[in-house]
């Protein structure tokens, strides 16, 4: 079996990019929370929490 070469720098770049994207998503998500009724956002959040996928 032929295995791929691993470029650690490339992975490091990818991790940084992912983190930046997640921070961007938080901006989007907090804006969404601010304009969304509690009943709606909490019901959506509960789908993550109540499945116990931690």
């Amino acid at each position: 079996m032929k295995y791929p070469k691993i470029d650690l720098e490339e992975i490091e770049e990818m991790k940084k990019r992912n983190f930046k994207e997640r921070l961007k998503f938080i901006e989007f998500y907090v804006n969404y929370l601010k304009k969304t009724p509690n009943k709606k956002w909490s019901s959506e959040q509960n789908k993550i929490i109540n499945t116990k996928n931690i």
Binding site: N38, K39, W41, S42, N46, I49, N50, K52
Partner: peptide, 9 residues
């Protein structure tokens, strides 16, 4: 004060 749908936590 916060009123919302409560979850397991």
């Amino acid at each position: 004060e916060l009123e919302k749908e409560l979850n397991y936590l």
